[in-house]
C-alpha cells in the first residue's frame, strides 16, 4: 500500500507508525493527545473548532471519500476561508497530518 518507508515515532508517550513526511500510517493508532503534539510541531494551537474539522476529515477518510478543499467547504463544519485561518499555510495537508490520515492527493 505505502511505497514509502515507515518510521516509528513517539508522540504523547506512544509509539506510532509514520511515513517519511510525518503522516501517521495507521489511523487506529491516533489519539487526540497525539494529534495535539503533531499540531504543536505545525505551530497550530488547537481549539474546539480545529478538532471539529479534524473529526470531519477522519470521518471522510474512514468512508474512503477523497478530500478536497471544496468538500471541506461544503461540509457545514467550516467555510473555506475559516479553514485557511484555522490551519494557515497549507490547510488540507496540515489538518490531514494532525488528523492522522494520509496526505491528500488532490490538486483542488
Amino acid at each position: 500500500m505505502n511505497p514509502m518507508t515507515t518510521l516509528e515515532k513517539n508522540y504523547a508517550g506512544q509509539c506510532v507508525m509514520c511515513n517519511e513526511e510525518g503522516y501517521l500510517t495507521q489511523l487506529d493508532q491516533w489519539t487526540q493527545e497525539i494529534g495535539a503534539e503533531i499540531a504543536a510541531e505545525e505551530e497550530i494551537e488547537m481549539t474546539e473548532k480545529h478538532w471539529e474539522v479534524i473529526s470531519f476529515l477522519q470521518e471522510q477518510c474512514r468512508k474512503e471519500v477523497p478530500l478536497t478543499i471544496r468538500r471541506v467547504g461544503k461540509s457545514g463544519v467550516v467555510s473555506i476561508k475559516e479553514f485557511y485561518q484555522l490551519f494557515p499555510n497549507g490547510p488540507l495537508k496540515k489538518a490531514s497530518r494532525i488528523a492522522g490520515i494520509p496526505k491528500p492527493v488532490s490538486c483542488i
Binding site: E41, E42, E43, R97
Partner: peptide, 8 residues
C-alpha cells in the same frame, strides 16, 4: 518534522 519546511 513539519509540513511547513521553508520553501523557495
Amino acid at each position: 518534522m513539519s509540513t511547513s519546511n521553508p520553501r523557495k
